[in-house]
Design a protein around this nucleic acid. Sequence first.
DNA 1: TCAGCTCACACTTTTGAATAGC
DNA 2: AGCTATTCAAAAGTGTGAGCTG
Length: 722
Amino acid sequence: MLSVEMFPSLTLGPQRIGDCFYREREASGHMSLFPPTCDTAAKALPPRLLAPPPVLNEPTAKAQKDEVKMELENTSLWKQFSSVGTEMIITKKGRRMFPGLRLKLSSLNPSLRYILLLDIVPVDNSRYRFQGGGWQAVGKAEARLPDRVFIHPDSPATGAHWQSRTISFHHAKLTNNTLDSQGHIILHSLHRYQPRIHVIEARDVLRWGGGQHSFVFPETQFITVTAYQNNKITELKISANPFAKGFREDGMNSKKQRDARQKRKMSVLTETLDIVNCDPCDTTELLSQSTEGSVDLQALALSSLPPLPPLPDPSCGYRAEDASYADALVPEPPLDLGQAFMASQMSDISGISMETAGSVIERSDSMDERAYTANFPAAQVDSSSFRLAPPPQSSSSFNPTDTSDPQTSIPTLDYPSVLSSSPTLSSSSSVTPSLQQTTFTFPTPPPSNSSSPQPLLSSSSSSPSANAYHTLPDMIAPHTPTDASFPPASVSCAAFIYPNLLPVNPEPAPTVTPPLHHQPQAAAPPLSSAHGAATSFAFTPHMQNFAGPVHSSLHLPNLSLQASASSFNAAFPPSSFTHSSASLPHPSFQPSSSSCLAVPSSFQQSITSAPAHPQNLPTSSNSTYASVERGSVPHFNPPAPYRPEMVLHHPSLLPQLDPSLPSSTPPPPPPSLYPAFPSYPLRLCQDPGHSSLSMPFRHLYRQHGHAHPQGSYLDMSTRPVF
DNA sequence: TCAGCTCACACTTTTGAATAGC
DNA sequence: AGCTATTCAAAAGTGTGAGCTG
């Protein structure tokens, strides 16, 4: 059984301090969602980084050198929303995202397997409020919630598979229910988030963790709400989402129709009352009459109803074929029957836990619409039709110079940078982190034909229109002031360490590692060849499945995405999300600083080239983010129906609060060099508690031993995968 | 009083089973 | 018997607005 875990704090020394603060607050305050110990996971995190498997002569070697590219297919739609200030409804039961994430991957090795993950991380440490026609930061963010990852149902699948279709994460759901047991991604309302997509390479059937690529599309940032705040967003949603078609002008649930219904209701009630009241003293007679069949009270009421509204005229009523569903789901090919077979063959995947650490995107918070326009001329055009009214302008409420702007008072980031050190090295604390293991199973991928790899789709990568946004670098400074003069990100590099073998049991961190920024080499955990001997997974080669007892684990500790803040910001200045630069939490952010993490030589991923300069961005509707490294994906056919189980729950990612830390006195803010929010290294590791591989993929993951007073959310064991 | 959240509602799309036809 | 196309109902996804809560 595979287990997925996210240990956001593990690799982040200082950053976790911020997290600890939040959790500390929670523990002592209103929300004690997390274990009482802080950062224990990070502290206790064993040096699991092991020597990567030999790469030489591997078919993937070349691919690794290639730049994995990911395109956001519905970029124009996202930009339309982004230009207004994307809002995402979150509910207790879970709400899908709209627009959804529809992606194309390219430059993947067709024969290699990849896992696609979606996670959503806070953009900053602020809570927002919609006022004055725009979003303004009004205070500190709520304590972090359990980090969860949505695993694409197709995962793991071959590069050919991913490249052959559009990849959609529309099944992912967002919830504000901190006790959610459905595996939905838990978010706070009125907070700003950034979705991230991770492509994790399974080098071959025997080894995982060959590479990891993360992508962030700045235009997909959104603010969570329980009810839409901005009417423009509502209009956009209604106009673009087919499920909301009924609310359109010509829809049966439009304001007009609803008013009409309301009137009818009222009239019915009124008439009914009139009838009843016509002879209050003789109801018996009335009833008697009704029983005779001529005058039924109900019939009277019905008869009083105005004629039913005429059926919608085909020309204006709903017609599926002319739905203006910009984000309409791409026709998905029928589910590959092979998946069922594969699923049956892959029942033995086990022992893998995944830890994801989020990287924080640091970006300018300038909400200047003009900036957006400048950077997205195409989007501007596309969205023009949606601008029924001028978007919340930066004028008054968004004026950075406005000292009254609540943002100015916004404290600097509470999330220390993560890049600094790997979890294993970050602390020598004697506290042993209780790594919560979440077990999960991957949906069975369609059988891949490695013998005849499909040609890589070149459309996305070669398309001149593709925007050259790079994959997420380790960290993007969310609050980096937008500076046009800022040189294009020359450093969008990310390093990934993928020891394919990880000790089952955490080992004490040997040493404290200084921030990677300064000591990139430190980022590379000590790769132990001894550990590396074992492969992460035992597969049944011909089935390309996981099989047999797996005692090795995939460890993807440093999934750090670091992008040049300048390029990032320039490319995607928040349009509606107001954030005065003055309030930018990371004044000290240095885009020029090394954004590349040192990684084991064999696994060192060269950082991809800097993102294209904003001015040079193509007007294509697609945004292409070059992967940090190699590999990429193409089209994908959303195959297996989504199940909530696809969402990985990794409470373990939540570092336990350190009891020793005073709850009333949060730790001092991390050094300025840290990004606004924590990065969450993505880790795949074996689930020590999982001894048997025979377990079918009934459960996506399982939480172990983390009973929490408040939370059943830790227990994901009851969720079937399929 | 008010901001934010929950819920029921009506409408729509999606999904899958049942059925018919070849 | 097997396959495909069509039909239909249930499930699920929407925004709305009233009501509740702190």
